[in-house]
Nucleic acid binder design. Sequence first.
DNA 1: TAAGAAATAATAGTAATACTTTTATCTTTG
DNA 2: CAAAGATAAAAGTATTACTATTATTTCTTA
Lengths: 226, 226
Amino acid sequence: MNLQISIQPNLKLALRDPEGSALGRKIIRECIKLMSTLGYEQFTFKKLAEVIDSTEASIYRYFENKHRLLLYFLTWYWNYVEYQCMVSLHNLNDPSVKIKKIIEILTGSLPSWSDTSDIDKAALQEIVIAESSKAYLTKEVDDINSLQLFKPYKDLCRHIAQIFSEYNPQYPYTHSLASTVMEASQFQPYFMEHLPSLTDFGGEKRNSKKVGEFLENLVFASLRKS
Amino acid sequence: MNLQISIQPNLKLALRDPEGSALGRKIIRECIKLMSTLGYEQFTFKKLAEVIDSTEASIYRYFENKHRLLLYFLTWYWNYVEYQCMVSLHNLNDPSVKIKKIIEILTGSLPSWSDTSDIDKAALQEIVIAESSKAYLTKEVDDINSLQLFKPYKDLCRHIAQIFSEYNPQYPYTHSLASTVMEASQFQPYFMEHLPSLTDFGGEKRNSKKVGEFLENLVFASLRKS
DNA sequence: TAAGAAATAATAGTAATACTTTTATCTTTG
DNA sequence: CAAAGATAAAAGTATTACTATTATTTCTTA
């Protein structure tokens, strides 16, 4: 199966489709590495231009600004997760199995991360974990939201909430539970690495499985019919 | 009861104690208003200097930079929450009552916010909700953490985790549950306001009670002995 | 294959940010 | 009253986040 995904060129996200040119693809590829290394604040178009041997102005012809570029990555990521869910769940019926699968995907412990595209997925996931919140924790949230730029995230949340209510149609907080789990699946690994006392699984390496267990426990406990 | 709280001058947070001078107090007071209005990114020392009729350089004699100033506020806030917990819980025995109280405090639906200090607590809470993550989602996390600047947050998390394990000594994820609840108590109200489809309680105004109900349900479901 | 269009590079420029430095003027406090 | 310390005033720096202009390369397509 070919896991190549291409974002339908969203002209609000990018000024021109970066997948459609050599320079564009180079921008994406190198930007992911650079931004995950430097972090969002230290990352600049100028530094990226040096790395790809081009100019700031050329990058600006693809992306209005840094923030839109970040959103481009997040959109890519959440579309990809949604896609993974669709592929993994389409032949499943038992909602509890679906839920387990989703948590497995969210906590990134799936091998399907390896495909043919030249995107450094590990670096992309680092960006998602460390920078996602900066996409919406800005005074421009409402503007960005009205441009539909959070759609993939909201769609996935809705999708997960839908499966929660398949499992227990009486549960009243499906969307909040879904967004909480999505957030926690990013924050807990970050805490694990940098502020381990906020979690119960510091120390040991490669613990995404533990986060998954915690979230499974959380979700099934919440959804249990009382 | 006097709810006045003063942060013991943490010389890593501030270069000199802002509570100890008229200018310092003015900086704090006006900064809270300005930062909550402009948001962290748009807030600058220069703009603040104009508002308080002083100079950038004078502000820099109190705070190394914007980020430390943010940490100062967060420290104040989490110390205050911890204090509120101590006051509210010290004569309680039943862990389930304690848990309910904590969630009430976390979701800010307590009236004790009104006291004599001239700090605009509503504005402070807006800052906490919208900017907290930016305190630790930075490449300098580990440095800042080793200066103990996240201590109040981690202490409160530990405290809550402790009460969770009073309620159910078998539950294995007390710290992760505590940090998840602390995060969610900030994010859910933000989502409610800006991205309501990520929650189950958009629309209706003043819904912190609903967030509290969701979190209570989440916590007690998770902690229920199986 | 030549002409025109589009993309990219090279270069420069601007306003704002995040500071630092210097010097002068207040205000305490001993 | 003198010295120390705090604040103000003013200027300066490196970097950021862009925008603009012009030149060069590459891509179409007639």
